[in-house]
Structure formats: structure tokens, C-alpha cells
Design a protein around this nucleic acid. Structure first.
Lengths: 203, 203
DNA sequence: AAAAGAGTTAAACAATTGTTTGATTAATAA
DNA sequence: TTATTAATCAAACAATTGTTTAACTCTTTT
């Protein structure tokens, strides 16, 4: 009764994150959050004014986690080719460890009005990046062909994130169990950077 | 009063498809379907036993539409390289015209137990395809390197579908309006097949 | 024309939802 | 200690949910 002081708020947020990530906004019920947090229902409205506000705070955190991961990596001072390998490798690991994040971000994004993105400040995130500089420089040197940085980023994200978002379908069509799926993604760690580099170097 | 006979059922299904696609299962309310269909609320339960059954019939149709599109293309008697270009081109067009389908399929797939996939019969869809034969043959001839067909299909799908699923985010980060986004996807029609072919031919 | 059946309706149903209330307990300040 | 504030709780609230009922209308069949 001394240690648990003050942690009701924390336990609510942890429980809410779990439930929201697994079931989305509409699918999540306040009573389930309360139960999972081991807390009285009214406490949720006491600490967070409403379901909407509780959700928004969790969505914002998760969103920052999702794009922040990428934002850091594209600005590291690593040579272009190594960087592409690294981004694919680390982003695959990140999502493997947080497999619910992509579906959560993408599903609830439709609902969110664009006002949300403005607050975070993702606009120009790529245009101002070291990654873009490198793409331009290497293209000027004639080492790779010119390409929009956004195309490269979306290619990386699409190739990594999509299999997770479509995981039940992918696993069933491919006849993969959990282990098989992870093996499938491990192979992709090799294929995706090779593919991108093959495209960039060619012509 | 003569022509409208019997089409209540149809109007309900059309309205339900629109609403379910836009808002998902949980986000869809029976009263909204009734209103959009211009039909009394009770009619929905009269023709379709429950919300669940109505949803399932629409989900099944949409799912077949989504994977059927792919199933047809991978079995066409076109040379491998041309086929890859064609699949990318036509699938991009298909999703451009039905932009809500991917999010719908992928979101509600999590809820669906695997039993659903079994009914449709997607297992082995790729393994038995002409597309796989072609990959094997060309690899044996030494024209391309060996690769799992599933990896290629997922690469195609990920590169095309992901931008649509993440459209609000992509558009905002890239500063794209509707026209800009379509231009972005048009460019991808070129990049994606080139990238895949560059990877396959290389080494 | 009468009977039967399908189609349609407004109203009600019970269950579940997010939120609020008012009382009770614990912690802090005077 | 006493008074004030914060935290917690069971209960109730009004609104919304999917579904059902029972009456009514129109069409079809006999």
C-alpha cells in the first residue's frame, strides 16, 4: 500500500496500450482496460478525461516510436549502401519485437485528421535528412541513378511492414508457422537491400 | 413501386459494403447501413440474419476480389519479365480504383480466425502457379537467381499496397495532394518491376 | 373475392457503452 | 488532532448498440 501509490495512472496507461494496440479504438472497451489494469473503472476518467484523450496520448507515443525509429536511422553518418542494409535490418528487428505497432498506426490513421501529423512535425522529415543528401551526392557522382528519397523509404517500409500487416494471410498462403514466418523475414533482410542496391546501381 | 421491388436486399448489401469498407466492422452501425440504403432498420435482419453474417458475406466477396485479381494474373501465359510488369501495372490500377480494399482486408483479417482462409482455398495458390514454374525454369536456365515465389509476390504486394494503406502518412510526409500521390504511384509502376528484375538478373 | 404469404414498418427490447455522481477512505497540511 | 485535499469505489446515468416483436400493407395464389 506504499509502493502502489501513484501507479494507478501508470497501470492504466500500460493496460490501455496493450488493449488499444490489439483491438483498436472502437474495439477497446473502458471496462476491459480497467480490468486489465486492476483498477476501478472511474479511475480512467479521473486520470485521463475521456477514452478519446487516453487513446490520443497512446497513439501519439506509438506514432513517435514508429517514425522516430526511422528518423534516427536516416540521419546517421553511415555510407549510403551500408545505411540501407542497416535500416532494413534494424527496422525488421524493431517490428518483429513490436509486431502490433504497424497495424495500429495504419488502421487508426484513417480516422485521424491530418491535424495530428502537423503537431508531430514529420513534414520534410525526409527532405531534410542526411539520407537525401547522400542519394543526391551519389547520383551526381554517377554511382547510382537519381531517385526521389520518398520512393526509397516507402520501398523499404513497404517491403518490411507489409508482411507483418498481412501476416495471417502470408503465413497461411505460404504454409508458415511462427518460426517459418520469422525465417521468411530473415531472408527478406537479405533480399530487400540487395534489390534496392541492384536497382540503384543499374542503368 | 414496381421497379423497386426486391431490390431492398441489394441496396442493403451495397450500402453495407460502402460503410464496412470505410469504417470496418466495429465502426459500422446497423442504423447507418439502413439509412444509407434508404430502408427500414429491421429489413437488414430480415434479409441477413445478423450484422455478423452480413459482414462475413461482404468480407468474403471482397477477399476473393482481392486475391482473385492476383490469382488470375500469376497464371497467365505471359513470359516472366513481361508478367511482372503487367502484375504491377494492373494491380496498381485495381487498387487505385478500389483504394479501401487493402485496409479493409488487412484490418479485419486479424479478427478472422484462420478457418476463413481454408474455405476460400488460397493455400498452395502460389506453389501451384505458372508463375512459380517460370521462376524455377528461368533459374535452372541460369537467367535469374533462385528465389522463393512467395518472396516475389510479397515484394510486389508490399510495394504497391503499402503506399495505399499508409496513404495519409505518405501524402503528408511527401507533401502530396491527391494528384501528387497518383503521380507518385505512377512512378512506382516503373520502379518496382525494374527493381525486381534488377535483383533477379543480377549476380 | 378470400386466404396466404412475403415485405415493410414503428416501437420496444435487453445489453453494452462512456461518463458522472456522491459517498468513503487515505494522505497531507494546519 | 483537525481540517483539507487527493484517491478510490459502487452505483447510477443517459445514450447507443444489435435484435426482435407484432401489427400493417401489398402481392400472389386459390
Amino acid at each position: 500500500m506504499a509502493e502502489e501509490k501513484q501507479d494507478a495512472e501508470i497501470k492504466i496507461k500500460e493496460a490501455a496500450r496493450r488493449v488499444f494496440l490489439a483491438q483498436g479504438y472502437e474495439g477497446t472497451k473502458m471496462r476491459q482496460i480497467a480490468e486489465e489494469a486492476g483498477v476501478n473503472l472511474a479511475m480512467i476518467n479521473y486520470y485521463f478525461r475521456s477514452k478519446e484523450q487516453l487513446f490520443q496520448s497512446i497513439y501519439a507515443e506509438t506514432f513517435v516510436q514508429f517514425v522516430g525509429q526511422m528518423a534516427v536511422m536516416i540521419n546517421e553518418p553511415t555510407p549510403l549502401e551500408v545505411k540501407i542494409w542497416k535500416i532494413v535490418d534494424r527496422y525488421t528487428d524493431f517490428i518483429t519485437e513490436n509486431p502490433l505497432i504497424p497495424s495500429f498506426i495504419l488502421s487508426e490513421q484513417q480516422t485521424n485528421d491530418g491535424a495530428f501529423f502537423r503537431e508531430i512535425g514529420v513534414r520534410g522529415l525526409i527532405e531534410k535528412s542526411v539520407f537525401k543528401q547522400q542519394l543526391v551526392e551519389e547520383a551526381e557522382k554517377g554511382n547510382i541513378r537519381a531517385i526521389e528519397p520518398l520512393q526509397v523509404i516507402i520501398t523499404i517500409l513497404g517491403n518490411i511492414v507489409f508482411p507483418f500487416v498481412a501476416r495471417p494471410l502470408v503465413s497461411y498462403v505460404g504454409g508458415l508457422d511462427d518460426e517459418g514466418f520469422l525465417e521468411f523475414m530473415k531472408t527478406r533482410k537479405q533480399i530487400v537491400p540487395e534489390m534496392i542496391m541492384a536497382y540503384l546501381k543499374l542503368k
